[in-house]
Design a protein around this nucleic acid. Sequence first.
DNA 1: ACCCGGTCCGGGAGCGCTCTCAGGCCGACC
DNA 2: GGTCGGCCTGAGAGCGCTCCCGGACCGGGT
Lengths: 356, 356
Amino acid sequence: MTEAVSRPTLEAVAARAGVSRATVSRVVNGGDGVREPLVERVRRAVEELGYVPNQAARSLVTRRHDAVAVVIAEPETRVFADPFFALQLRGISKELTAHDSQLVLLLTEGPEDYARVGRYLAGGHVDGALVFSLHLDDPLPGLIRGAGVPTVFGGRPGWGDGSRGDGPTVYVDSDNRGGARDAVRHLVGLGRTRVAHITGPLDQTSAVDRLDGFRDVMVDTDPRLIVEGDFTPAGGERAMRVLLDRCPEVDAVFAANDLSASGALRVLRERGRRVPEDVAVVGFDDMLPVAESAEPPLTTVRQDIEEMGRLMARLLLRGLDRRGRDEDADPGPGKGLGGAPSSVVLPTTLIRRASA
Amino acid sequence: MTEAVSRPTLEAVAARAGVSRATVSRVVNGGDGVREPLVERVRRAVEELGYVPNQAARSLVTRRHDAVAVVIAEPETRVFADPFFALQLRGISKELTAHDSQLVLLLTEGPEDYARVGRYLAGGHVDGALVFSLHLDDPLPGLIRGAGVPTVFGGRPGWGDGSRGDGPTVYVDSDNRGGARDAVRHLVGLGRTRVAHITGPLDQTSAVDRLDGFRDVMVDTDPRLIVEGDFTPAGGERAMRVLLDRCPEVDAVFAANDLSASGALRVLRERGRRVPEDVAVVGFDDMLPVAESAEPPLTTVRQDIEEMGRLMARLLLRGLDRRGRDEDADPGPGKGLGGAPSSVVLPTTLIRRASA
DNA sequence: ACCCGGTCCGGGAGCGCTCTCAGGCCGACC
DNA sequence: GGTCGGCCTGAGAGCGCTCCCGGACCGGGT
């Protein structure tokens, strides 16, 4: 059997280069304070032996792991019936890679898993955590903050953006409310007067925010024009039927996501309403396979998902960095980006297609 | 600042329980060979102090990491415009969790990243790897095998299932060829005689296998009824137009995935062909948001994606296990599952909806 | 009464690395 | 020319854990 050849150690490199372990270590970690000829010799030895530092040994003494946990609560993965998930991870991965950090993925299967995640995070295996949990009543965020691990949340957590215990909650979200406003304003700009809203499940902050955005524009709207959906096509169909029954003269619909919009579209077609002539429809997410291949292609609100991921990682890493520095040196004012990282809300863009 | 309280060590637990480090270690690792009263005392001490083993220290001596890398090559993530990715990861995660292993996610941005991945894997940071790379010409699989890390592939790698250097290649795939056969047989069973095929990009094994399945049934088919697509709706549209121009009497289409099927559907509608009356359409993947909300809902071939992930992880872990045991004991014959793990091809199911 | 085997526990070495500290060297300054 | 300071380098301790080994203890066979 191909026995794994025991990998070379610092010691071996040192011997080969004719220097001490300490010097090799210095070179491997940047090479400051080592004279050029030696650096060169060590580099060559490293090369020749194919030396790769043993991360376990390093972590043992530095207490850093160059690893970040990404926690995704199970209920979300159902919602991620689109590239959302993949894109977010991609953004995160890119940023982490650029900082030589690893991505440890923690997926939970319901609350019974939360303890495991909590233990893992508290166990000090990672330097920080990126957490997705967008439900108002989810205990996960609290639990994680309890673990005392630097954390950045994806999406505004349920308890708002206030502080909770130690330090402010840092999150990255897209501007759901603003995006919703844009969508509704677009419909209004089209001359539509009976604008309805199919919401998402209102235990999710994104759904709530989009509803708020809708209300911002349609201030005194007939409450019967707001129907709760659940981010699924089936929910969109149900909601659209309700809407049509309650209020046949509806001439525009803002659906809280593309999936429900596609359901709404189907019902409208079934009932003989032309889109956009009779009823204009706008979705949210710009979930491509759905939005582009809808009939007609969907006007929708796009969010830069990959950028969200990248930003989350950047915020976390910056925080870790800061934390590291703070220990020995006063940060000093005016470092430019010096302050504690704070939440970021990313802008959205209205993508005009045929449906509105 | 909330200074991270230094976490308790084995030593601390030992002191509290009034035993030696070694005994605590034994208890923590299963407690064999320690008498009950002591076990109990140690357990309590662990509990009271909230002791969590330091994985770095442990890895340093055991050379195990209880971590598995999941490598996903960038080109794939584009294709994963559906829950495929998420589901697969979920399956993997479940299985790994059940075996107390962590999931380290490695996403690559093009071939320039491969070196990084290779280095990481060769660096001995993980016990094994699960690799997704479904392109015929991708150097990644070879590179990874070179790193000498136990690996299971997701999807049949390009070079076939033969061996390559040391040991056989282990992979998990769904039965693309068989699924395609089922789809085409279904169309034939419907009485269709001019069955066309819109392929996927033929540098991917799944696309090739589906084409082979098509050919298995349509042995002497007119080559003009086979048009290359690219797994996208736009590609499906293009292919469908070509098909209709070349061969207006076509009465059935088997598209290599749901996305291209949706494109085909749109063109058919545009050209006034009724589905399924004039042209029956079958897709592949059962990508829900697309297949279910297509017009009409798509008959398609479903694969159990989550199970694929779970199986990949299981195969890998089993291999690791075996490797560990082999070192001191002869495995002995007839262990039931005792042999070296070999590749698995999962069955598919035809899902009948309205389009065929 | 003795010894032998087995079971259980503690001592101690050492995994590969970082980091502090002291020592050696050299230039500069008085 | 002496001394001081700064820059490099090496020696050594120790991170928290596992695991080998030896000693203590107990029971049973002769």
